[in-house]
Each structure stands twice: as C-alpha cells, then as structure tokens.
Design a protein around this nucleic acid. Structure first.
Lengths: 216, 216
DNA sequence: GGACCTTTGATCCTATAGGATATTTGACGG
DNA sequence: CCGTCAAATATCCTATAGGATCAAAGGTCC
C-alpha cells in the first residue's frame, strides 16, 4: 500500500507560488527572481524552476529565455470575451450530451454538488469567493465529465478559465441569479432535456459574460 | 541588436526528446530514465528534467512523483473519436467566423498556404508525411487565426491533435480527397460564404474521422 | 552634449554531488 | 510452493557552485 499521491518539494513550491500570484503577493507583469523567490520560500532554486515551468503551461507566468519568468497580465476585455465565446462552443453541446447520458447516479452527484454550494460561508470575503469559484468550476467540469468526452473536458480544464477569471477578482459574480441559473441547468439535465440543458447553459454563460464585461 | 530567439540547452534537449518520441526512438509506454537520457544526449540531467516538464504539458510524457516519467500511449479509438468531436465543436463555427472576417490579405495568405502543399515531395515517405501534416496544421490554425478568437486558437493548439495523430502514423490520410476538401473550405472562405465554410469544414473533419477510425 | 563602447553587477542556466524514495532481489517462515 | 519481510540497488529529487548571458552604469570619443 502507498500513500496515494506522494508529494515532492516542487509540488509544494508550485502551490505556494500559485497562491502568491492568485493572492497578489506578486503583481501582474512583475519579474520573478528565481533566487529571491527560493530564499523567500526557503528552498533551493531547483524546485522553483520546476514549479515555474509548470506554471508556464497554465499561463500564470511567461518565460523569456535567459531573461527569466514574469507574471502574466490580467485578462483584458477581448480575452474575456474570447474565453466566453470558447465556452459557448464547448459547454452547451456538452450539456445536451450530458442530458442524453444522464443516469440516476450522475443525477445524485450533480444534485449533491449543487447542494454544497450555498452552505459555504467562509470566514472572510476572499475565501468565500474562492470557495464559490471552486464550486462553480466543479459543477461545470462535472457536466463535461457526464457528457463523456475526455478531450473536451481536458480542453476546458486547460483554459483555466476559473483561475483567470478569479484573478480579475470581481466580487459577486455569484448571486442568487447564478444559483438560479445553475438550478435551471441541473433541472434540465436531470429531466434528460437535451435542448433545455443546452439553452440553459447558453443563457448562463451569456449572462455571466455580459455581467463581467460591464464591469471592465 | 539581438539574435531574435536565443536558445538555451533545455530547448535543444526538448526538441531532441520530442523527435525521439515522435520517431519511435522511445516506445510508447516505456519508462524514461533521466540519467540515461542525459548521458545519451551528452548533457546533465538538469536540462533533461526541464525538457520533460514541458513535454508533460503536451502529454507526450506523463509524470509519477518519485517514479519518473514515461512515454504516453498512443491514442485509442475513443480518444481519436473524442478528439474529432472536439474539433467539430471548435472548427466549423470558426470557419464561419473566418468567412465573415475575410479580407484580401487573409485570402492571399490562405491561398498561399494551400499552394505550398502539393509541391512538397520530400526525400523519404516519413518526411513527406511529416511535411503534409505540418501543412494541414498550418492551414487549420490559419483559419482559426483569421476567425480572430485567440482563446479558441490556443485551445486547439493545446490539443496537439496533429502531433498525436501523426504518432498513429497512418500513412496516406492525405490524398487527393483531402486536398479537394481543403480547396472547398478555402473557396467558401474566400467567397465569404459562412454557411458553406462551416459545412465544408464539418464534412472535412467527419470524413477524416471516419477514415481514421476505419483503420483502427 | 550625445552616441558608442567597455565594464560591472545581477540573474539565469548547467553541471555535479549527496540525500531520499521506490523497486528489485534474496531469504525466511508458513 | 507461496506470501511476507528485509537488504541492496537503481532512480529520482534537491542543494550548491560555477560558467554564461543580459541589463545597466560609467567612461571615452566625436
């Protein structure tokens, strides 16, 4: 028997740097000094380099050869718009597919996820928002998982859309409205209503995009 | 002034390992011994580790903590099927968008790319196939670039679909038929025929999928 | 005074060595 | 004979040091 996921130091460093960037411990656009970061985290530069290489793949940092890494800028209007256009290509058809493939077991899972949402009042607003974003991500990814296309799921995951939208840090994209929209999507899914699920997902994404762009 | 892209050793190592995997220098599923590979390439393990970290992001290798890297298996039937389903979600709507945004300059670029295709008889069949795959990739990515949604383009690029399909190494997915299909897509694009471009792209992808699955 | 070159400092990149962990080999007991 | 356990080997992971490169400061010439 084995502890399922043995962690190595680079994994911890990865998480810490990620938290630093997400929590604005390092400003967008700032250069990342490997040695300094290593001293700050009390490790050698080697695992820091490895962690940065991974962070580059999710575009939280960018690398210039022989010049080091720097934190990527926040998404601009066009990038947010494009990102939602991409999601509109992927998610509504996947929701329809998920409705077609719905089983009692899947229905239980998605109802459970939806139930965990409102009952998460964290200590401070920051954690609260973080938990809600994480819930939203789990719900959307669960729908893609039910749809059963691993390529679409991976493609969606690699956009790291929740991560980048979270960086924008617009409090309260979550309101009663979002919960209501989620409820509508899940209802259509459980009812095996393909067209309804697709339409509900489309409406959900378009409203979210409009709400976000209004604030930029 | 500066030589535009200064390369570091890890970049070269990355290319070499990639070529090794693509050219079956390392078999799918095989473990990758970092030290051995470093000796083989006559470098230290450090840049090899960095290169492997990058290769992991395009899923040519997978990492198990404290157990090292191994070459990923070839795509199976379902993965190929899913990959084309994903492309069918992304590319036809993007083709329609590209048709709507078509300009004389874009038209020139895409006609030029199409023209370079048949005139590439390489020395051996392997290089020939490689060149044709590269052409196909450039054409499809150019259409996404014309469509103007960077998120969709990146999402497509990160599937590394041409890379993984190339690994399957089914000679002759390229024939007169593929050229004809490309011609039809480009014609619709240049004519700013949105519905036609979308339909042509859909047909192209569905035929390619059927042809590939038949051989698996 | 401005442009160009040289030098200095900082930073990244690579090599090497040693500690930590997993896998394998062999022995022991049931 | 098979399962379990312990020692040995191989491999990975991390730390450290030095060479290589870039950016900036200072000096010289026009």
């Amino acid at each position: 028997m084995r502890i399922p996921a043995r962690r190595v130091l680079a994994d911890d460093v990865y998480e810490q740097i990620r938290a630093l960037i997400m929590g604005d411990g390092i400003a967008p656009g700032a250069r990342v000094n490997i040695d300094e970061l290593a001293r700050q985290l009390d490790v050698s530069p080697t695992p820091v380099r490895e962690a940065l290489a991974r962070l580059e793949s999710e575009e939280l940092v960018s690398r210039l050869p022989l010049r080091g890494y720097s934190v990527t800028d926040l998404l601009n209007r066009k990038q947010v718009d494009d990102l939602y256009s991409l999601r509109l290509l992927l998610e509504p058809p996947s929701a329809a597919l998920a409705a077609a493939r719905m089983t009692p077991e899947f229905a239980g899972q998605i109802e459970e996820e939806l139930a965990t949402c409102p009952a998460a009042p964290a200590d401070d607003a920051y954690d609260d928002y973080k938990n809600l974003t994480a819930h939203d991500q789990r719900l959307h990814e669960l729908i893609l998982r039910i749809a059963g296309n691993e390529a679409v799921l991976q493609s969606f995951a690699k956009t790291h859309c929740h991560l980048h939208l979270f960086r924008l840090n617009f409090q309260q994209p979550f309101g009663v409205q979002t919960i209501t929209e989620h409820r509508a999507i899940v209802d259509a899914l459980v009812a095996r209503d393909e067209a309804g699920a697709s339409a509900a997902m489309t409406a959900h994404l378009e409203i979210a995009r409009a709400r976000l762009l209004d604030r930029m």
